[in-house]
Amino acid sequence: MVDFSNLSVGEELPALQTDKISRTTLALYAGASGDHNPLHIDPDFAASAGFDDVFAQGMLSMAYLGRLLTNWVPQSYIKNIDVRFSSITPVNIDIICTGIIKSKTESASQKTLEIEIEAKDGNTGDIKILGLALLDFNSTL
């Protein structure tokens, strides 16, 4: 269990390294998520839209960022996640998710952390998603 009192600004969360995002990953995510957008599963449609190939659902990488957070703290601590998708994620790369504590605030009722979160190409470091998560360590189920 992560102890709020021991945390400080600038500290990094344990990174999350994903497996390679294969075409199977995209098909499974399409089925499980209900997002059947053919840009992610049908190369013919992707080509007709001007893309070289299918590419990963942005929400797949955001789900990885969710895993980064819930591997570190109970989900009930997560109050807000706000991200921007920076570039598309091609098939056959892996993603590394990182987080760093940007601010720490404690009041009578709240113990909050602001975490800068990033999903990057595991090889090139290209940023795919950049955002902020707000955690409250006083929040219970």
Binding site: G58, N80, V83, F85, I88
Partner: peptide, 9 residues
């Protein structure tokens, strides 16, 4: 394309 996404719980 998806540009931004936020969740408040």
């Amino acid at each position: 394309l998806h540009a931004k996404q936020s969740f408040t719980y």
